[in-house]
C-alpha cells in the first residue's frame, strides 16, 4: 500500500518535471517542424540563470518568498535572450531546409550553447536549495515530500492549461493552428508566418529555460545537465505524439509513473525503463499516442 502511494506521488512529481522540460520541444516541433536539440541548452541556461540569481539574492539575507518570483523571471530572461539570438541570428536563415539538416543545425547550436554556459558560469556547481526548503514538507502516509515538489506539479498543470487555452480559444492560437496545418496557404492568406515562428521559438526556449529554472533549487547545477534531458524529452514527446501538448502531458505521465514503478519494484531496470516504455508504446502506436493526422501526398 505504502509502495503504491509512493509510486503514485513520485511518478506524479517526476512526470511534472518531464512535462515542463519537454513541452517547449513539442511546441517548436509542432509549429516549425524543427527537432530542437538546442532545447537542452535552453534548459541549462535557465537552470544556471535561476541558481545564480537565487544565490545572489539570498546573500542579501532578504526573505526567501521573493525567490519564487526570481525563478520565472530568470527563465524569462534566459529564454528571451537566447531564444531571440538563436532564432534571429541563425535559424531564420535555415527555414525550408531539410528536417534532418535542421537537427544537425540545432545540435551545432547546442554545442555552442554548452561552451557559452561554461564560459559565463565556469565549471563549479551552483546550489540554490533555499526555495525548495523554505516551504517545508508534508507527510503522505508517513512519507515526507517537499511542498516544492507539489508546487512544480501545480506549475506544470498551469503551463499545460495555459497553452491549451491559448491555442484553442484565442485568435492568435487559432491562427497558429492554421500555420501548423499549411504554411504556404496561411502565408498567402496574409498571416505573418515569420513572426509566428519567431514568437513560437522564443516561447519554446522560455519553456525550456523554465524547466531548468524550476529544477535548479532541487539539484546541483553543473555542466552537462542540458545533454541529459534531451533524449528524455524526445522520448516523452514521441510517446505522446510529436507536436501535441496533450500528448506531451500523457507521455510525461506514462514515463513518470513507469519509472517510479521500476525504482520501487525492480530497481536494476531503471536505467533503461524510459526506452522500454518508448519501444513498447511505439510498437503498439507507431506514431505516438496523440499523433496529428497528416494527409499523404501522392
Amino acid at each position: 500500500m505504502l509502495t503504491a502511494v509512493a509510486i503514485a506521488v513520485d511518478g506524479l512529481g517526476f512526470a511534472a518535471w518531464l512535462f515542463l522540460s519537454s513541452v517547449g520541444l513539442t511546441l517548436v516541433y509542432g509549429v516549425m517542424r524543427i527537432l530542437n536539440i538546442a532545447h537542452g541548452g535552453f534548459y541549462a541556461l535557465g537552470a544556471y540563470t535561476s541558481a545564480w540569481a537565487i544565490g545572489l539574492y539570498t546573500q542579501t539575507g532578504s526573505t526567501i518568498a521573493l525567490t519564487y518570483l526570481i525563478i520565472p523571471l530568470a527563465a524569462l530572461a534566459a529564454g528571451l535572450v537566447s531564444g531571440l539570438l538563436v532564432e534571429r541570428g541563425i535559424l531564420r536563415f535555415m527555414y525550408g531546409r531539410d528536417e534532418v539538416l535542421m537537427v544537425l543545425v540545432t545540435y551545432a547550436i547546442f554545442l555552442v550553447l554548452e561552451d557559452a554556459t561554461k564560459l559565463i558560469w565556469g565549471t563549479d556547481s551552483y546550489v540554490s536549495y533555499q526555495p525548495a526548503y523554505w516551504l517545508g514538507t508534508i507527510d503522505v502516509f508517513g512519507l515526507p515530500y517537499t511542498v516544492y515538489k507539489f508546487l512544480i506539479v501545480g506549475v506544470a498543470i498551469l503551463v499545460g492549461a495555459a497553452l491549451y487555452f491559448a491555442l484553442n480559444h484565442t485568435r492568435t492560437g487559432k491562427l497558429l493552428l492554421v500555420v501548423i496545418e499549411d504554411r504556404e496557404v496561411s502565408s498567402a492568406l496574409g498571416i505573418n508566418v515569420t513572426l509566428f515562428f519567431t514568437v513560437t521559438f522564443v516561447i519554446g526556449a522560455t519553456l525550456g529555460a523554465l524547466g531548468g529554472a524550476l529544477t535548479a533549487p532541487e539539484i546541483s547545477v553543473v555542466p552537462g545537465i542540458g545533454a541529459e534531458i534531451i533524449v528524455m524529452a524526445f522520448a516523452v514527446i514521441v510517446i505522446g505524439g510529436m507536436g501535441s501538448i496533450g500528448g506531451a502531458m500523457l507521455g510525461a505521465l506514462i514515463v513518470g509513473f513507469s519509472r517510479a514503478a521500476f525504482v520501487h519494484l525492480y530497481p536494476p531496470a531503471e536505467l533503461f525503463s524510459i526506452y522500454l516504455v518508448m519501444a513498447a508504446v511505439l510498437t503498439v502506436k507507431p506514431y505516438g499516442l496523440f499523433a496529428l493526422s497528416e494527409s499523404r501526398k501522392i
Binding site: 535555415m94 539538416l101 543545425v105 551545432a108 547546442f110 554545442l111 555552442v112 554548452e114 561552451d115 561554461k118
Partner: peptide, 19 residues
C-alpha cells in the same frame, strides 16, 4: 576548454555554405 564551441561553429558554417 571550449573546443565544442569551435566544432559547433564550424558545423554551422559548413551547413550555411555547403547545404
Amino acid at each position: 576548454n571550449t573546443w565544442q564551441m569551435i566544432l559547433g561553429t564550424l558545423m554551422l558554417l559548413t551547413i550555411i555554405f555547403l547545404p
